[in-house]
Design a binder for these strands. Sequence first.
DNA 1: CAATCAATCTTGACAGTGTCAAAATATTAC
DNA 2: GTAATATTTTGACACTGTCAAGATTGATTG
Lengths: 206, 206
Amino acid sequence: MKQTASSHNYHHGDLYQSLLLTATEMIAEGGTESLSMRKLADRVGVSRTAPYHHFKDKNALLCAIAEQGFQRVEALLQEVQTRESSEPLATIFTQYVHTYIELAYKYREQYDLMFGRDIWRNGTPTESLLNRSKQHFKSWLNWIEYLCEQKVIQSGDSVLRTAQVYWATLHGLCRLLNDGIYTEQSQLNEMANTAVDMMLKRQKAD
Amino acid sequence: MKQTASSHNYHHGDLYQSLLLTATEMIAEGGTESLSMRKLADRVGVSRTAPYHHFKDKNALLCAIAEQGFQRVEALLQEVQTRESSEPLATIFTQYVHTYIELAYKYREQYDLMFGRDIWRNGTPTESLLNRSKQHFKSWLNWIEYLCEQKVIQSGDSVLRTAQVYWATLHGLCRLLNDGIYTEQSQLNEMANTAVDMMLKRQKAD
DNA sequence: CAATCAATCTTGACAGTGTCAAAATATTAC
DNA sequence: GTAATATTTTGACACTGTCAAGATTGATTG
């Protein structure tokens, strides 16, 4: 009973990709909680336990999705640095902050997953995810170092601490937005500007 | 079959308080996830559904616990303001930041609950919790306003935005710590200092 | 004191969850 | 074609939140 069309009889073909894609969709729709292995399997058209041959765990699946999120923010960071020739650094930094927040909001559920308890407290992050997240912070640190050298942003005693605090600020803003504590996005744009003002090196101070 | 001792035969006495207390303990031990209504009931020595006569929901129970957390931070904020006569404002502010972070770490699981998805996304915050959290931010805002007036901390265009961004920074730091992204507390003390430096009004700037 | 009522607690039940073990099926290698 | 391997399925288990109906108690009447 073989079908010439490459459709789903028994072996699905590329279940791995299908699972990853559909799971990402489901999370985008209703958050991590609305994603159950069983519903996912259903939606992909496969039995309950089939996913377990492609992902060891639900945790592993979540890590894979989070990893894609980190790829995205890393890509943004890289891309933004290529604009250096055409724009002043302060402008680029400002743009980055705004875009980061926009991304975190657009993919809010995935963002929550990336930094949330599901992975970092309940589950255990995959080696792969761990590497990618560390790598991303390293990229951020490098950029901040560069911006400090160029006297674009204000730095305290240690550049490392500065990078940490600035990222904490950025992350804090995103969480505020995502957790619905300040729901209005208009407010958040202003907040982002205030934050940027705080970070940028001032020309003069009275 | 009545017992003279006031112990648990059928009516427990003050189940409400017992539940609240035990649930808080369980959360402190293993986070929100390790708290199930059934295990809680077991531990208190009562049947599965008994808690439902004192808390409408698991959500309601969580909200009650979160509310206690807000009471604690509100108390800290109030207490800190009484020190004004004996210490300079900048010192008080610095102390507050450090204490806030310490509290958030000491009661990390409860802190996560206070600002986490469980309540603000999955569940729906109780009216009572909503009021208390709004009230607390108002207190914070008032204090920041005062500190701005006294030229103790740096302010951007809007005091409201400043209060929001500063709180976001503080909150971001706590999450970094609590989510185990920067596990070492020594680092966090330095980070707190860097953050405070960023907020305090500088005497001179070059 | 006895009887009623409301508060409180229990048992039973249902649908849902993650995931393990064993069996079934398809694909690939020889 | 047969054997080995990869993939999928069915069955099962322990766990979850919570609803409905019944049991037990303490308080409130007469």
